[in-house]
Design a protein around this nucleic acid. Structure first.
Lengths: 186, 186, 186, 186
DNA sequence: ACCTCCGGGACTCCCCGTTAGT
DNA sequence: ACTAACGGGGAGTCCCGGAGGT
């Protein structure tokens, strides 16, 4: 582990990346600085060389998590048209997404915590919601404009409920039937 | 304050009730024992006369929160038929519900936290989801059985997103447009 | 153990007596109600049949302790004249008195605690000081009236210091030399 | 507040100092750890960074109180000869000293409590009594060696009684007449 | 960048005074 | 009068966020 500025930047990114994952997994308050640094392969001592406070890390990590978690949707959108919308719905309401919040959509991972997070983080969350709505709007050009809102609410709620319940069967039904109902509207 | 058994039961309920509200408001880990006891007009000293551990209180409080938060839906259901379903959708996706999680639906308040809560609490949450699905199924007798899942996902996701974003206008849109889209299907 | 009114009065007195001893030994806050009742051969349950509060017991116990502890001095005073004064000084500054605060003078046992005791108890303490001063005044008819104050201060301070230090030799010196110096003045 | 080592030492001293005052004022058991820490501008959380136990603080605080409370006497002693002795007597048996135990002589503040205090604290108390006796012995070179014992007993007993009684007039008399009688012997 | 440590605050346990119920 | 239990509050332990010092 060198000590050049490039290394420092790399470490910084490693910390933020680890935080982005853990925060989606266990929530903003669910992880400590020590834990985060350990995940990044460091000890917690040098933390304040990188961030002025824990809140600053949280802000950066949430931003990364939002960006990172929306890649799926955006790449799906590339395919265009009906296909794109179905890809998003299926991807969002999938077992993979349900079982891997740490690499999934941050909008679905942090809806309750974000209210108590740093202002900047909440603003980033909000603008991500805008982005989703815009995307969904573009993908449903001939539908009622309300439709995008319904889809977003449903996929977010669906995956959240699927994560929350402790019966595998019910969890799967929540994913599949919500998805099917949404697809049925097209 | 008195110390009869009746008083104790009353105090016990006051603590659980306060906890049920605070937990919906600030999350399972967002409230401390002292704070909870203060809310109930007591000090932290007598806490362990009522509960073997903090987790035990959490379990009871979540149970109460689930029960208490579903009264709205159930009373709405009493009216029967189309009216009932609309009442539920409108009530769930309302500004009042959005602004008062402490007396609102616990399913919407705790989807992420519940995964790290005591097992019993999670089981209670799960069975509440079942109850909602049953209720919604009964209220949409001639629709596809998937419909109930979509409605539940959408109202939960909708109010959660409405709470999460920090732009009042967007928040209102999330409520209204999701509700309108759901109503449109009937 | 019967249950007549006479028995009740007897129990009452036993409790007060035990308390008067323990309080002199370990201080007002040094003994609990449970302990006191146990000393009196009872359990703590019936305590409030006898006293409205712990403070009430303390008040009674201090009164008894003061009265009881001054018997020595008063009986010594009976002998009259020079002899009486010497008997008091020697008795007060004796190893027996030092080693048995529980049956000794309460004025010497409670000077610091009494400030935080119930008002009535403090008043009783004060009037006991008056009584001592009067007694000593009568026993030194041809001396300066200040003399009684000096004697009282010295015997109280002497026995207190003798109890406080943890070197037997020093403790003995404090008793003996203070006593000798006082006797030397006659 | 800061957290450097210098800050820690300063905090440590603030805690001990506050404890030395409160203990003289309300007794060893009269103050809680939280209270003490609050007095020092801290919370009870960091207490065990400074002391292994409450008893350890008590030991340190009593040591400081003894040292601190004897400064008056020692500075009075500097003036030498007759003057010094009178200064000590007058200072000890003064209204200021009576009314401010928290900054006064710990030998007078703790004679009863010290018996139940940690061993080390009691040892410190004892050696402080030795020091007083030595000092008084030096200041009365041509008097009977018993005289120092009488003076110490009298001034300690005098101020204690003056603090204990609840009649201002009697309290004043105890101070003044004891002092006068002591001065009269010179 | 690591190690050490500080102060904050939470949880748990235990004892005390007091009250109900038997 | 005894048994049991309640609420109050102190003590002790732990961990977290944050800040030196090497």
């Amino acid at each position: 582990v060198g000590s050049s500025q490039a290394d420092k930047a790399a470490n910084h990114q490693r910390i933020v990346k680890a935080a982005a994952a853990r925060i989606r997994e266990r929530g903003v308050d669910g992880v400590s600085v020590v834990e985060l640094m350990k995940q990044a392969g460091l000890t917690h001592g040098g933390f304040y060389r990188h961030f002025a406070s824990r809140d600053e890390l949280v802000t950066e990590a949430v931003a990364l998590a939002l960006e990172d978690g929306s890649k799926v949707a955006e790449s799906a959108a590339q395919t265009g048209g009906e296909q794109a919308l179905l890809a998003i719905i299926n991807g969002y309401l999938s077992e993979v997404h349900r079982d891997h919040p740490e690499s999934g959509c941050a909008v679905a991972a942090l809806p309750t915590e974000i209210q108590r997070a740093p202002d900047q983080a909440r603003a980033a969350y909000t603008s991500q919601v805008h982005r989703y709505l815009d995307l969904l709007g573009q993908l449903t050009p001939d539908a009622d404009p309300d439709e995008a809102y319904l889809i977003l609410s449903a996929i977010v709620g669906g995956v959240l409920l699927a994560r929350a319940v402790d019966e595998p069967a019910l969890s799967r039904e929540l994913l599949e039937r919500s998805a099917r109902a949404l697809r049925g509207r097209r």
